[in-house]
Design a protein around this nucleic acid. Sequence first.
DNA 1: CAATAATATTCATAATGTCGAATATGATTA
DNA 2: TAATCATATTCGACATTATGAATATTATTG
Lengths: 127, 127
Amino acid sequence: MIMPYQASADLFKTLAHPARLAILSILRDGEQCVCHMEAMLKLRQAYISQHLKVLKDAEIVSDRRDGWNMYYHVARPEIFEVIDPMIVLTGQPEGIPHAHSRAECPCPKCHPEDGLIVPGQVMLVSE
Amino acid sequence: MIMPYQASADLFKTLAHPARLAILSILRDGEQCVCHMEAMLKLRQAYISQHLKVLKDAEIVSDRRDGWNMYYHVARPEIFEVIDPMIVLTGQPEGIPHAHSRAECPCPKCHPEDGLIVPGQVMLVSE
DNA sequence: CAATAATATTCATAATGTCGAATATGATTA
DNA sequence: TAATCATATTCGACATTATGAATATTATTG
């Protein structure tokens, strides 16, 4: 009588952590690398990786390697049909501030070739 | 950066148990007493009470006493806007069987005055 | 008020989740 | 191939949750 709800309960458990909800919020608009999340959330890299593993094991996100960076994206966008009503229910502001500016984020996606030299950045050098 | 999601994460945690999802499913169509849930879910009474307390502390359900029975109902029906998409996402059958028949349920709501004598039943005795 | 019915609470233990620190891995560059 | 960068994994202490058993509580009946 309870068993049919096990899968839902498990997935709810996956969502039951503020860091994981914040990560999913970042991935909502498309894939991002881990260093981007690190800059936006101001959390340690290893900590973010741990939560990404939980999300990946639950098959909510997938990853893709590109050189040094791992890019994560939402594999089941339907998850937002669960998350969004919850955010409404708990009365949080629609646009949760990400406290993010390109200047703070060292990831290549945020620093294409704008002349800013950042560790790890791939640059096009004209002689 | 993570804090704004604390409330949502907490409420997800409340939903992250199959027994609590099963209880909410029973309460979906209106209030029910604890003994009714006991009969439907085939779980120990004390166990159900513990989960009801979690739901009550989260203000998802409320209770009302009527004589010997405590009747619980959903205080925030919006919670189903969170639960339903999750059940769709995890691919469970729409109508989850409750394995319930009036014969099995001793609660007064299931045994109005149909002549069946059940412990605890309130009866109208004509002389 | 004693007995009883329905429900709640407390307690103990096992299981699980959190999170920091340290370390490991894989791709890339020099 | 050694150094480096981005990321992942492992380990351990600690906190929280799950769950059964026992007991307490509250309303009702006689």
